[in-house]
Amino acid sequence: MKAGVIVFPGSNCDRDVAVVLEAVTGSAPAMVWHGDHDLPELDLIVLPGGFSYGDYLRCGAMSAKSPIMREVVKAAEAGTAVLGICNGFQVLTEAGLLPGALMRNRDLNFICKDVWLRVEDCASRFTLGYEDEQRILVPIAHHDGNYYADDATLERLEGEGQVLFRYVDEQGEASKAANPNGSRNNIAGILNADGNVLGMMPHPERMAEAALGGTDGRVLFESLLDTLS
């Protein structure tokens, strides 16, 4: 599996995810600068977390218009797997590859903590290594992770099984108390209709080795390796 990480000015999880990708796939990912006009041949494109363009205008808005994103959109439409983490999720919605928008957190706080997620569907290429409804512990670190979509979009996402991760409590219930940021339906991560683009606010790359506190996040990258190799 050949992976690539898009690096925007202000990305700060690009190296973290590169370390995990190299550990899982055995080869270093291509690091692709946002101003480039060409993408190498890739099986997986990762849009990393961070504060690209200082979150000017709206989180992810400027990055979504950068030259390389035109190529990312083309690749995604051609079926290449794309994973957007945190700021990467915001970029994917701003680029129109995923529906909805990420708004300021309900309580206006920057939240940095480990949260429980429920894996809603383990049939996707991103979650094959998990069990259905498995509860996993992954950190979030964001100010704008409050997922919003209108009622019709939400109904479609739920109906088509495109909600892949949901914030839950320790018992696995998607309760209001377990919702850190006000996201509609406790949504933490969604797939596009074709199943090749995933956006998620939690950081699986920050829970990918025992020294970091757990390996629940690593399974996502191993799933991709199994599917895309």
């Binding site: 205008l57 218009k65 909805g100 209108d150």
Partner: peptide
């Protein structure tokens, strides 16, 4: 339409 507003919200 292209940039200043996000028409989703």
């Amino acid at each position: 339409q292209a940039l200043l507003a996000n028409l989703v919200i």
